[in-house]
Design a protein around this nucleic acid. Structure first.
Length: 576
RNA sequence: GCGCUCGUAGCUCAAUGGAUAGAGCACUUGACUACGGAUCAAGCGGUUAGAGGUUCGACUCCUCUCGAGCGCGCCA
């Protein structure tokens, strides 16, 4: 762990333990606006042992644990201890990090097996803004968890089963496979679904065929299954084009559709039966998890088997839990699903605990997110009131980035330009998704997300590109400065160094609550610290050894920036 | 009706129970024959929806009120 604030905490732990009445006290070290770090732990401890907090703080300082790392300490206010780190200490820490491919981030111990359930589009249905959120947030969490050293299993729980498939298969037959395939692979999924639905409502004969087709599908009829598979294949082919555009990690190997859990559902029912949780309720087979009520204040059941004998999505989700726990050996399951589903997941997880499939060491967590709002602060829609297609959003982001580059950097090499345009457009879109607290609704605004000022993707990419430019001008290889000592003379250098070293803490905080916006905030602060440094500390014009020292600090900054952006699924171009 | 989530500067967003609640945009003012101005420095702007409570200390935890969004039995 390279973060000096964390180092400080471990240095102080024995001091606090010794001063405590019961042998244990938290030093509570935090980054500070008043110094490099502040120690808050003297205040609660003084209260506990009945002494003056400032005097206790003085005893902490006098214990000498800080002498090797601090150039100054000060007791402030009611009993805070402000610490300024010595340049020598920070330089030594920077040297360690610079030689470390993991940039100071320790590998998780223990490493867990973590299943991340995200994206989950529906077969023969368009992907919309909501899919963007789950896909981007999920992708970022997957990348970050994997880097942290966990065994991550991606699962794309696509909606590939259920009653609408009778109608969709019949519609496929009516259109002819080739015509249907053209429409679906070109991304007109909504058109396909809508016309099928329309026919279902208008044409009783079609509706009847559709119902019979569902029966055939559920009965495992080979021809029907082949048609169903065709629909799934065409849709996943389309989803893959969207994933390619977005640059996310999902592949066909990650597909784990609802259909996959159908064979497991009778067993799920049987196990609930055996465990005595299953209750007959008005002909349906249900479980009543405690604490849930319906409109009338009566207990709310989770319906496992409908009166008709059919299973539904609760059953499927429970079968899925069992599969992830028993086949995949998951320690943790993350469900990146919109916040509207939270009661559903609470009930699922509670029933799974009651059944013994989940416990303190095998957990499931709903990672909810809010809705994307338009300027009017209502759910984002197109002008005609339809949900906006995800591909259109992606394409527009890239178009807008292209316009910006044409204006700002018209001389950029044409070959490089297309690639850079994509990186900036997609990066801006992703960063906008990730940079605010996921649980809140957020307002979608093209101009803001593509702005080069403020907490945006392009601003971070620009800071990175500037550093690359520095090295091009200097005609120095980036790798060549990675063993040179970094001296911290100026306050801006000191501040930047401290920020660079806080990278592991930023990752910890991000994973602690599965909140990518914390990593975004860190990277933004890193970029602003860098630009302040860049304005105040000339690099190329400086005399040696300052020049090379500053190049080394810039290189390390760029490595952390590019790496952090990588964890968000965002590329960092070398020029833009 | 019950439940969940949210409410922070004019706008968009931050803030592990720590000091004077921070950024960006907008507005005002500075800094360019430029290590990439796609920038930086500074100013203006707050009863953290409201009222209680816990705490040495509350945007943060608890209770209530108000407001917004979403969910609430055999669809997924």
């Amino acid at each position: 762990m390279s973060d000096p604030v964390v180092t400080l905490s471990s240095l102080l732990q024995p001091v606090f333990d010794a001063l405590a009445d019961d042998g244990a006290a938290d030093p509570t070290v935090r980054p500070s606006e008043h110094a490099d770090a502040q120690i808050n732990g003297a205040l609660p401890l003084a209260k506990r042992v009945g002494t003056n907090p400032r005097e206790l703080a003085q005893r902490v300082v006098d214990a000498g644990a800080l002498d090797d790392v601090a150039s100054a300490t000060e007791i402030a206010g009611p009993g805070f201890i402000n610490v300024t780190f010595s340049g020598g200490f920070l330089s030594a820490e920077l040297a360690t990090v610079s030689s470390d491919e993991r940039l100071g981030v320790a590998a998780a111990d223990p490493s867990k097996t973590i299943v991340v359930d995200y994206s989950h589009p529906n077969v023969a249905k368009e992907m919309h803004v909501g899919h963007l959120r789950t896909t981007i947030i999920g992708d970022s969490l997957v990348r970050t968890l994997a880097f942290a050293g966990h065994h991550v299993i991606r699962e794309n729980h696509i909606g590939d089963w259920g009653r609408p498939f009778g109608m969709l298969i019949e519609h496929l037959l009516d259109l002819g496979e080739d015509a249907a395939a053209d429409g679906l692979t070109q991304g007109d999924l909504d058109g396909f679904y809508r016309s099928a639905n329309k026919k279902f409502d208008a044409d009783p004969e079609f509706a009847e065929r559709s119902r019979q087709r569902v029966v055939l599908l559920q009965g495992g009829d080979a021809d029907t299954l082949a048609l169903w598979q065709r629909l799934v294949d065409l849709s996943t082919e389309y989803f893959n084009t969207v994933y390619d555009k977005l640059g996310v990690l999902l592949t066909d190997d990650d597909l784990a559709g609802e259909s996959q859990y159908q064979p497991l559902m009778p067993d799920t029912l049987a196990r609930l039966e055996t465990s005595g949780l299953l209750v007959d309720d008005d002909g349906a087979r249900v479980v009543f998890p405690p604490g849930f009520t319906n409109r009338d204040g009566d207990p709310l059941p989770l319906i496992i088997q409908a009166r008709t004998g059919g299973f539904n999505y609760a059953t499927s989700d429970l079968a899925c839990v069992i599969d992830r726990v028993e086949r995949l050996d998951a320690d943790l399951m993350l469900y990146v699903v919109d916040a509207g589903q939270s009661q559903h997941f609470q009930m699922i997880f509670e029933v799974a605990r009651m059944a013994g499939w989940l416990d303190d060491t095998t957990q499931a967590v709903h990672v909810p997110f809010g809705v994307v709002l338009g300027e009017d602060r209502r759910r984002l829609r197109s002008r005609s009131g339809e949900p906006i297609r995800l591909v259109e959003l992606i394409d527009e982001a890239v178009e807008r980035a292209a316009a910006a580059i044409a204006e700002k950097n018209p001389d950029l090499d044409p070959d490089e330009r297309a690639e850079v345009t994509r990186m900036i457009g997609i990066g801006a879109l992703k960063y906008a998704e990730l940079s605010s607290d996921r649980v809140k609704d957020y307002v979608f605004d093209w101009d803001r997300m593509l702005s080069f000022d403020g907490n945006t993707g392009p601003y971070l990419q620009y800071a990175h590109a500037r550093i690359c430019s520095l090295f091009r001008r200097a005609e120095v290889e980036r790798a060549a400065v990675r063993t040179v000592p970094i001296e911290l003379g100026e306050p801006a250098e000191h501040a930047l160094a401290l920020r660079v070293l806080a990278y592991p803490t930023a990752i910890d905080a991000t994973l602690d609550t599965y909140s990518p916006h914390k990593l975004c905030t860190y990277l933004y602060e890193l970029a602003t610290d860098f630009t302040s440094f860049y304005e105040r500390c000339p690099v190329l014009k400086a005399d040696e050894p300052t020049r090379t020292s500053r190049l080394a600090l810039a290189d390390l900054t760029a490595r952390v920036l590019a790496h952090g952006l990588g964890l968000l699924g965002i590329d960092a171009p070398e020029r833009m």
